[in-house]
């Protein structure tokens, strides 16, 4: 198939970027979206041009590295699918495809389609852990966890931290990511003791990083390759409110 690609090219965070148009002939409809970009890069290298930089790692939809906004939709048109799992058969012959990076102030462009997502690491470092003695792990079944709770925590833990939620949100809010991480640990017995401190610290780090605010569009969950539910945001809001009230009346600092 023949494709016209409009790709965001940007040398680094300091320079201004722009969309460049490339034409690609004879792409197999069975190739993946990233393979299609590999083919384009081969062509660019052969022509003596600088290849397009884009993030990728496992290419099997579990690492969260790929981060392409395809025709305005993070990870492209398929639901619950990362860009690396998207295949060219999803597009029409002769179609024009626009490829842009994630766009949010806390995710500055490093080069072309690669963004710096370390703002997510800052949120994790603020409270995305449990405080426990390291060393030999305790027996897996020592702490009984109801099936419902572990299922729920697993749904939250499915988040691969790709950042598509931020990219899709019309406010560039990171509520879905942060809430998945909060809900994951706050719903398990190991995470419960630090519930209040965690939600306050992680929301604080999220706000400090400069993400936008949530106005409940629901675009985040719709593009999430792991289908993280808006329930997580509701739970985080609830936990946050509870923690705020509790610390207000508590003598201990959170």
């Amino acid at each position: 198939m023949k494709l016209t690609l409009k790709v965001w090219r940007q040398k680094n965070a300091q320079t201004k970027g722009r969309l460049e148009t490339y034409v690609l002939d004879s792409v197999s409809k069975d190739s993946s979206f990233l393979e299609m970009l590999d083919i384009l890069n081969e062509q660019l290298i052969a022509d003596g041009e600088v290849p397009i930089a884009f993030d990728h790692d496992c290419r099997e939809g579990i690492c969260g590295a790929c981060s392409l906004t395809i025709n305005g939709i993070p990870h492209g048109p398929d639901r619950a699918t990362t860009a690396c799992q998207l295949h060219m058969r999803r597009f029409k012959d002769g179609e024009t495809i626009t490829i842009e990076p994630w766009r949010a102030k806390p995710f500055p462009v490093i080069k072309d389609l690669v963004t710096d997502r370390s703002a997510f690491d800052d949120i994790m470092q603020a409270g995305g852990f449990i405080t426990a003695r390291t060393g030999s792990a305790i027996d897996a079944n020592e702490i009984a966890i109801p099936k419902d709770d572990s299922d729920y925590a697993m749904d939250a833990a499915a988040c691969i931290g790709c950042g598509a939620c931020v990219a899709a949100c019309k406010n560039a809010s990171a509520m879905l990511f942060t809430s998945a991480k909060v809900a994951h640990l706050n719903s398990l017995p190991q995470g419960k003791p630090e519930k209040d401190r965690r939600v306050l610290a992680m929301v604080g780090a999220m706000d400090e990083a400069g993400f936008g605010s949530c106005t409940n569009y629901g675009e985040c969950s719709a593009v999430c390759p792991k289908e993280i539910s808006l329930d997580m945001i509701a739970q985080m809001n609830r936990d946050y409110l509870t923690a705020k009230v509790k610390t207000f009346f508590s003598q201990k600092s959170a």
Binding site: K6, L19, N71, R103, N171, A172, G218, E219
Partner: peptide
Amino acid sequence: LASRKARPEDYRQKATVQATYASR
């Protein structure tokens, strides 16, 4: 204002997946 600041450079091609007309 916070949301505007959070996305200084907007998408050239915009799309909406499911956000309702009312919400937008």
